[in-house]
Simulated assay, not measured.
Amino acid sequence: MNFSTETQTLIEGLIDWFQVILTIDFARYLFGAGGVFLLTLLGRQWLATRKIRTKSPRRRQMMREFRASLITVFVFGVVGLSTKFGLEAGWMEIYGDIDDYGWGYFAFSLIAIIILHDAYFYWTHRLMHLKGMMKHIHWLHHRSHNPSPWASYSFDMPEAAVHALFVPLALLLLPMHGLAMWLFLGHMIIRNAMGHSGYELFPRRWAVHPLLGWLTLVTHHDMHHANGNYNFGLYFSWWDRLMGTEHPDYLARVTGDPDRCRAPLGVTGAKENA
């Protein structure tokens, strides 16, 4: 096999991989954002008491979010090529046989990647809110002041790249079974779409549960879009609690009990402007 044939084979392989990633990520976006959107649309009467804000996002805004999300899917595909290189080079591993590591590791890896993603999201999100970075990286997402599920992928290109880099970085640390990776990616988009739905889709009492209270309910992220100085977490509230960036009115807002206002556990809340 000569060099020209090897190069052509490599290029064809990369194109095929790119197309697969585009298809998977677009389908995942449609399934997550579209599914949650349909749930809130068809169930709007049943969910009326769970609506977080009086007004609903306009169709023009949702179309903008969808168009921006198509660009994000493209960026995810480009960055996803690094995963292809990592797998081919043996730096990363997505395995197919549970017995290679066992069910215990399967569960551990799934929990670990969710916890790692939450930490990655919190700290990169905080950085994006710095005054010198906000307008260049995170501004488009916050144009959706009152977001819809279609805002799940509505990012500036640099922000899309930051989000996409998590998977190859995580795979450098954690071998993942293919099913565990699918479960993680499905969990990611569903939680993301729910967080932008505008309806409190979780039981409100979870916010004050000793264990479930560490989960971020929909109101948590909705308040971030309303006031970008607080609530930077994705799945869990512990980083916001620890770093003093959870909105002090969050529990009062989500439970409807004004006596639930609390001071954060950590330092004074962030001062960056959204």
Rank of each mutant, 00 (worst) to 15 (best):
F18A: 10
S69E: 10
Y29H: 10
I189K: 07
I94K: 00
A164N: 10
Y105W: 09
D259F: 01
I15W: 12
S237V: 10
E200K: 01
Y153W: 12
F155A: 06
Y235F: 14
R60T: 15
P158A: 07
E12I: 01
M176T: 06
H136C: 07
V218I: 06
L10G: 02
G178T: 13
D156Y: 01
H163C: 04
M194N: 08
I52G: 11
G132C: 09
T5W: 09
Y122E: 07
T216N: 10
H220Q: 01
L140D: 15
A107L: 15
Y105M: 01
M133Y: 14
M194G: 06
R253H: 14
H220D: 04
G35S: 03
K271L: 12
F74C: 06
T72N: 09
E272L: 05
I114Q: 01
M176L: 15
A164I: 04
D240R: 10
I114D: 08
T54A: 10
K84D: 02
Y122R: 00
L30S: 13
H129S: 08
W238T: 06
W150Q: 03
I113H: 02
D25I: 00
N273A: 13
M194V: 14
S4R: 05
R143C: 10
R60S: 14
A161T: 02
A263I: 10
G104W: 15
L127N: 01
I190H: 03
K135L: 07
G132K: 12
T5S: 14
W182L: 15
T49F: 04
V79H: 07
E272W: 15
G228C: 05
T268C: 03
A164W: 06
A160K: 03
D257G: 08
R262C: 07
L130W: 13
T255Q: 02
G35Y: 13
A164F: 01
F66D: 06
G228V: 05
H221I: 05
I15V: 15
F37M: 11
N2T: 08
A226M: 10
R44G: 02
D259H: 02
K131E: 15
F155E: 04
T124N: 14
L165R: 03
R143F: 13
L14V: 12
R60H: 07
N192H: 04
T83Q: 10
N192C: 11
A207N: 07
F26I: 09
F76E: 04
G132M: 07
I111K: 08
L242R: 11
A226G: 12
A119C: 12
V254H: 00
L81K: 05
N227F: 04
L215Y: 03
E6A: 13
G77F: 08
T83L: 00
H225P: 00
R126G: 02
G266Y: 09
G213M: 06
V36N: 02
I15H: 09
H196D: 05
I24G: 03
S69M: 03
L10N: 02
V73H: 07
T268F: 09
